[in-house]
């Protein structure tokens, strides 16, 4: 029986106050920033805290939130899926197209999710089995799937989605949008029930040390491929809802969504180096991004500057992430 040398995952941390600050920032920084942004905006803009504004912000987040869940799990395993925005558009538009042709709603949803699962499976199998850099491969699927989405949009050009399809994202439970309730439930279940479960812990373990996870008999490849499939399905589901919300097939649907989602996930403490990230924090970060962009609009900042700001935020948090990662080595 061969003896393997196994890297210990939980190495005893070096104690120093600078490091403690960095770790504190990483764990709770996003919550602090969220509070500061909320306080600042509610002090200086009267209509920011209105029920109308907050619920519309939450509503927007509750639709895109599914994408950030899948994205976070992939990031924890050290992989990136940049095709989510295109999958979101293709699945949503295809489902909407079928609904407009009179196909029952549940079947439209199934087809939409199947498209997401298929793209995710292609991404996963190619990345994992052929050891391709996931960023580059998913840029390829981003392009190809976007092209297909444009084809669907061209077929649908000039038509609106059918009434029943458009109604889905507007269903309400006790006067609150059901998507908001589902978001809180999902985050709660993931955070308080599943986070202690074997599957989620395995995902973290794989991200922190794939070799040791493999030696311990985990089917690392299957988890990774599963992560891509999950990411595709969740992006498809979000696309299904958003397509109903925008009412017409929009060629710009989901364009650059992947950058916002990546920014939110990394802002929420997920690392490009894998092994770290939490769905709760990523969701809060998505909300914070929405608040910041909302605040910019309220202060009358040029809308085109939003891109500059998202890009600058992305670069600066990745710089911090890289710094922390270097210190830990």
């Amino acid at each position: 029986m061969a003896e393997f040398e196994i890297n210990v995952v939980e190495a005893p941390p070096k104690r120093s106050s600078g490091r403690a600050t960095l770790v504190f920032l990483r764990e709770y920084g996003i919550a602090v920033v969220a509070m500061l942004a909320l306080i600042f905006l509610s002090l200086f803009r009267a209509n920011f805290l209105s029920y109308q504004n907050i619920s519309s912000l939450l509503y927007g987040v509750s639709l895109d939130f599914y994408v950030v869940v899948g994205f976070t799990f992939l990031l924890i395993m050290g992989e990136v899926d940049l095709s989510v925005g295109s999958v979101y558009a293709l699945s949503g538009m295809t489902a909407g197209y079928l609904a407009t042709q009179g196909v029952p709603l549940w079947l439209c949803l199934v087809v939409g999710l199947a498209i997401g699962a298929a793209v995710g499976a292609i991404n996963g199998v190619l990345v994992v089995k052929l050891r391709i850099n996931s960023i580059i491969l998913t840029i390829g699927t981003l392009l190809a799937v976007r092209g297909l989405a444009d084809v669907v949009a061209a077929i649908m050009a000039g038509h609106r989605y059918s009434e029943n399809f458009r109604a889905v994202p507007h269903w309400r439970i006790f006067g609150v949008s059901w998507t908001i309730i589902v978001m809180f439930l999902t985050v709660g279940i993931l955070e308080f029930v599943l986070s202690r479960g074997a599957t989620v812990r395995a995902i973290y373990y794989i991200g922190q040390n794939p070799k040791s996870a493999f030696i311990h008999g985990m089917s690392v490849d299957r988890y990774r491929i599963g992560g891509f499939v999950l990411s595709g399905i969740l992006a498809a589901f979000a696309g299904f809802l958003v397509a109903g919300r925008v009412t017409i097939p929009d060629v710009n649907m989901g364009r650059q969504l992947e950058f916002n989602i990546l920014t939110a996930a990394v802002l929420g403490g997920a690392s490009l180096f894998g092994g770290r990230g939490r769905v709760l924090n990523s969701t809060i970060a998505l909300f914070v991004l929405a608040v910041i962009l909302n605040g910019l609009i309220m202060f009358g900042v040029e809308p085109a500057l939003q891109q500059v700001i998202v890009g600058a935020v992305l670069v600066s948090i990745v710089v911090v992430d890289t710094r922390i990662n270097h210190e830990e080595r």
Binding site: I136, L272, Q307, G311, A312, V315, V318
Partner: peptide
């Protein structure tokens, strides 16, 4: 990849 993704975003904006 991430660095130039960010500068791409800043530049395009």
């Amino acid at each position: 990849l991430i660095a130039t993704l960010g500068t791409m975003f800043v530049g395009r904006g």
